[in-house]
Amino acid sequence: MENQALLERFQNYVDAENKIEAKDWMPDGYRKTLVRQIAQHAHSEVVGMLPEGNWISRAPSLRRKAILISKVQDEAGHGLYLYSACETLGVERDALIEELLSGKAKYSSIFNYPTVSWADIGAIGWLVDGAAIVNQVSLQRTSYGPYSRAMVRICKEESFHQRQGYEIMIALAKNGNEAQKRMAQEAFNRWWWPSLMMFGPSDSASAHSGQNMAWKIKRHSNDELRQKFVDMTVPQAEYLGLTIPDKDLKWNESTGHYDFGEIDWTEFNEVVKGNGPCNKQRLQTRNKAHEEGAWVREAAMAYARKQEERQAVSAA
């Protein structure tokens, strides 16, 4: 049983908008939630490298190829910062990666959808990085200091990704030929709904929301963030001349927001459960890279040990 006085002091501290740091006392539940959430975020960055990496070798120009490599490389960097943020909570990166590889840990379901055309690369940058930004801007104010700081750093790069994605969409949907326009619309149709699903279950169905809001781990509800994303994205889609694949979408004068149709929660739940188009493939790919890299990591450790011994001998 945790000390009631400590819990109260913690809550007051958080309520006063102070940041919790690694060495501060924190409730077990707070620590557990953060580890789960930051690890999921880290895994999402790493798994997210795969659908986009899928088009590096086929990027249509030298410039697009370079931008895409550097984007996917940024995501690897985000994974690293986030694993480090998790380590401040006492969980090692290796242990986290084991959980990803065994299928025990979750990552963002969006990356279980396939990238079947070049336009998907534009749509991901625009919509998926766009949705990530909405979520992460909110998380910049999360109560855990190392996570909050990682978000500030990551958001800058994500907004770069979002602009580059949108730029791809402009080239295709606005300035492209008929085939490119079709490619853009088809990609938009594929990614629109999964992007809305990125914000998670609706508030009425969200399991951990209440306590996470009280601890200020989460600062806005799933539905609030989703609405923000829709309001931001619809005018961008209109500018591109794309049709939003939702017959219920319309501007609501009285709320000042766009109304939109019901998300297919059956699809959402199936993908979360592992039945999305690419869940198995993504995990297999990560596992393959990990297994094939085992000898490299072992060699690096063996070499580092030898070097230490050599230095010890020469110092003696």
Partner: peptide
């Protein structure tokens, strides 16, 4: 660039 996403460790990606 084919290694991107498939390296032995993130630092090498």
């Amino acid at each position: 660039s084919e290694w991107c996403g498939h390296g032995p460790i993130l630092e090498e990606d």
